[in-house]
Design a protein around this nucleic acid. Sequence first.
DNA 1: ACTACTGCATTAGATGACTAATGCACTAAG
DNA 2: CTTAGTGCATTAGTCATCTAATGCAGTAGT
Lengths: 134, 134
Amino acid sequence: MKINPRSHIPIYLQIAEGIREAVAAGVYLIDEPLPSLRALALEIQVNPNTVQRAYDELAREGLIYSKRGRGLFVAEQGEESAQSVAQQTIAEQAVQNAFQEGIRAGRAAGMTLKQLRSLFSASLDESTKQETKA
Amino acid sequence: MKINPRSHIPIYLQIAEGIREAVAAGVYLIDEPLPSLRALALEIQVNPNTVQRAYDELAREGLIYSKRGRGLFVAEQGEESAQSVAQQTIAEQAVQNAFQEGIRAGRAAGMTLKQLRSLFSASLDESTKQETKA
DNA sequence: ACTACTGCATTAGATGACTAATGCACTAAG
DNA sequence: CTTAGTGCATTAGTCATCTAATGCAGTAGT
């Protein structure tokens, strides 16, 4: 798993995404153990609490479950859930943060919801254009 | 001007919006003085620095200009800018920048356009909710 | 010059998000 | 029972954002 400590995206969200992708890819199977807090923390050179927070996030999503003293495991609906939601929740946080920042700025500037929606569509068009010239 | 100190929207942005609306409504005319920092601060029961920050924001947008020792004044393009474009040019860029950042992050994570639109709607709901609480 | 107003700069306090340090409680193998 | 592993709770440190306290510097009327 690759972690960028200098990213503006919080480490715990990067970790969560990494696990989510791995589960979706079938690296960890249902009811099989995930890397322990300390093991993963050691691997990516971060505090176990940060890994814990990532696992908390995934547990809140129902992707995994934990047994005290045992370890962390992929939940029943974990794999499919990870596949469908997959890379949605890392962004669900990061993307929504960006969106809300824009919304906040817009509303503070007196924009209506309609205007904001219009701007979003325009932004979407802009982005999809640029995508083809890569 | 109505200010909600308990809103999640920073006070200085609320003030900026209030001034912007007033300028757009023709309450303050071109090259006419705006309320002084302290006067406005006293009126809405807030620190002059907070008002200053609001005026800084508007000055950065080109809506107003300041003369040290004299006061703050509506810029030439201030009124029209506030009416038609203002909330749709400078602010538009800021908003679109935020949106596109979110879109970029989302697409990098493999999201579809549909998912992005859904997330945007969710963000919009979130933002409008928090606006009314207390 | 004095005075009373301006905007502005510097500094500090309050709050929230993120990460780390440390220790507790539980489980299982020996 | 001891031990080495587990997850988890508590606390603290760091950083950015927002707001306030205070003082400086410019302008104009008297």
